[in-house]
Design a protein around this nucleic acid. Structure first.
Lengths: 221, 221
DNA sequence: GTCAAAAACAGGTTATTTCCTCTTGTACAG
DNA sequence: CTGTACAAGAGGAAATAACCTGTTTTTGAC
């Protein structure tokens, strides 16, 4: 398995980042070959040689043309043995879970230390995967909310009427001050609602809250 | 028609606002009777006397329990001759259109002058409806985007790849600075993208943009 | 009644968003 | 070669959103 050099490909639209990664990899590991680089999923498809497939593909999530999700899906169908290590700046719960469900072998933030990249590559070759504590935490959290408590639906069912109302109003052009007035509550209380809902629903912004609400049918479009 | 007094009911969860409206109506028009007030749609259902239905119901949109949309739907089924005049602080395109499609006879903002309320009531009794230029504008705009140009789908089809990408990224926890970095553009350019998209898609906030994007399939949940 | 938990709310700080007006560069029709 | 048009970007201001740490009030269990 470690007889030949590890064959790697990079798929990321950030040329600078890609080049940087490239030089990093060349420095930290002698027995790695970079097969090719690609701007996005489509570009990757063209450059992928079925006779000489990479062992690991380092892949971004957000890319123009064909993004990481679709690219991984395509790979699962056409080249299921190619392992994917995601390197992304997206760290939203849903985004990570989505990728993990698609079977990626690791998930790194773009700001990790080079050493961690090295560890990740080594681990994936040796163990087949590399999940940081951070990722494991996300996984555990998802498992808990999915099964232990009966899933997201249950969290939603546990929301109070006022929380539900707050979410409805937050999914509009209203400011939180407007929402507070509409609900006869102090803006500071609304502040509390937002913070506790952000935590409960595991989102980090009003936008994410709104999308979550739509996704789970709390608000109808 | 103007033989009897005009019978009116108020449905709004804001007691203060309701009472204020009440006194306004009593002052401005002598031949109006207030049949009842209600906190929300459910409350209204209880207080509605089929033997003595109101001619016009002044209704809020956002209410706990049963909101304006559902209440109007219920009225259309059970008492189709009762006219609804919406008095709301919501002024989003979609919200207004939704109500108009349900057949409400007028749509007033909560901050209009008492005179306009008077005009609206008079118009609804005499002409059957009262649509301000603002509302008419919204209607025209919807008609245009729905039919003249082949609907919203067309506006969406006209979006550039970059605009589409921007929307994708905006539907996340990223800040606009992050988005700018991800797209290799100046934050100020992102500023421009946002502003032009807000206008094109007729939304007024990032939240609304995100919901619009989901609704029209620009981003998948 | 009392204690603990949850809800409502204050004050203050920083980051982000949104809006305006005004350049610059580039492409493209005339 | 010019004018028009549009994308990219600058500068600044004001409104909102987000976060953190406490205090008071309500509520419900014991």
């Amino acid at each position: 398995m470690s007889f030949d050099k590890i064959k790697i490909a990079l798929v990321d639209d950030h040329t600078l980042f890609r080049k940087g990664l490239l030089s990093l990899i060349e420095v930290i590991e002698k027995d790695i070959t970079i097969l090719f680089e690609a701007d996005n999923g489509l570009d990757m498809q063209e450059k992928l040689d079925p006779q000489n497939l990479p062992d690991i593909i380092l892949m971004d999530v957000n890319m123009p043309g064909m993004d990481g999700y679709d690219t991984v899906k395509w790979l699962k169908v056409h080249h299921p043995n190619v392992k994917v290590l995601v390197v992304s700046m997206i760290e939203s719960e849903d985004g990570i879970i989505k990728m993990l469900k698609l079977g990626v072998k690791g998930y790194l933030s773009k700001d990790v230390e080079p050493d961690e990249l090295n560890n990740a590559l080594t681990a994936i070759i040796n163990k087949g995967f590399y999940y940081t504590d951070f990722i494991t935490g996300k996984l555990v959290h998802t498992m808990q909310t999915d099964f232990e408590e009966g899933g997201q639906e249950d969290i939603i069912a546990k929301l109070t009427d006022k929380e539900r109302r707050f979410i409805q109003l937050a999914c509009s052009d209203m400011t939180y001050n407007d929402v507070a007035a509409e609900m006869f509550l102090s803006p500071k209380t609304i502040d509390g609602y937002r913070n506790s809902l952000f935590e409960k629903l595991n989102v980090k912004s009003r936008v994410a809250l709104a999308l979550y609400a739509v996704k789970h049918g709390i608000v109808k479009l």
